[in-house]
Design a protein around this nucleic acid. Sequence first.
DNA 1: GTCTATACGAAGATAGAC
DNA 2: GTCTATCTTCGTATAGAC
Lengths: 208, 208
Amino acid sequence: MSPRKSDSRERMVSSTVTLLREYGASATSIDRVLTHSGAPRGSVYHHFPGGRTQLVEEAVELAGRFMAGVIEATMQADDPVEGMDTFFAVWRDGLVESRFRVGCPIVAVAVETNDDAPHLARSAGAVFSGWQEAFTAVFRRHGLAEDRSRRLAALVVAAEEGAVVMCRAQQSTAPIEAVATEIHDLLAHALSNRSHADPAPGRTPDLH
Amino acid sequence: MSPRKSDSRERMVSSTVTLLREYGASATSIDRVLTHSGAPRGSVYHHFPGGRTQLVEEAVELAGRFMAGVIEATMQADDPVEGMDTFFAVWRDGLVESRFRVGCPIVAVAVETNDDAPHLARSAGAVFSGWQEAFTAVFRRHGLAEDRSRRLAALVVAAEEGAVVMCRAQQSTAPIEAVATEIHDLLAHALSNRSHADPAPGRTPDLH
DNA sequence: GTCTATACGAAGATAGAC
DNA sequence: GTCTATCTTCGTATAGAC
């Protein structure tokens, strides 16, 4: 009872998420996490015996859970199209408020696949899977077929992540605005056709 | 006349592209580039007075031009939908052949935005712009309106880049296959409606 | 164009005191 | 839980010979 534990640990994980978003995985050193969080240097390996890898791992999980919550919150409304607009708006606002300095921490970890810690990439993959599942459930709930729901969910996550990378590089919201518009129309169209055209799935293209 | 220059320089740039794809920007050190290319250590700053930053810069430009050529080549056929399938197949094949070890070098540079070399991110942005322009021109050529063409181009690039990141993290082609299918159908639908439904543009969603 | 040697800083991790 | 060394490795960059 009573707070015997300090909050250093959670502050470090939170700071790691922030630094991953802004500077990428390799640049997120223990030193910078300590400076950013104000946590004491001496207790790093007390809290994280797995060292830097464990710290990044927990940051990925935290950020993954957070965004899964955002998806749940935005998509539970009556109109999934409106929820989708809000989902993209959350990302766009993050870009604008940071003046295009911050991106997605999961992408940062996924891209810097390190041979030393290969399982970090899989943690990132698990987070993406979770987000896809959340969107898939929403689309299914609104009457879309299983296959179509999964494809749309993959497209939404991929397009959002790709757009965020492009917006940062171009210092412009144009890519995510364009993507949001196209996804909006696509989802509206898919939902309007849900009752009759179900057995006309998109064919799998020959990726020859 | 006669080859007074060695090929060390271009081999270094080429190796840098490969290492960016596989390990990310920060992990692409001069040492690793030298090892990978077999170039002599002594001439690094002779060929690249701007040091590591110049090396990465030139790698971004090389990779950007290369993929722009791929887009031109695949999309110049009669059927842009078929060309799009091929475009995604190129990326999917790169993932499979490398067993999900390599991604996009432009994304690698764009994500690891470093305060030391902020203009690297803009070079990445310029490459993305070039790819978008190439797709936009193709869509316009096939009768789509300017706005729609730009939006679709942004979606294609964003979805491809996002899907590649997801595929690597999940060690699966599922995301890019799903994205390719959805983009295939979307493009086919857009082209089939191009003559009559032009003045019904997708509305810009309120990203409230 | 290429060599070796070296300066300098930053990183991850561990040891042992308190 | 936190502190202060300290070890080791690796990174960029430069100097000066050949």
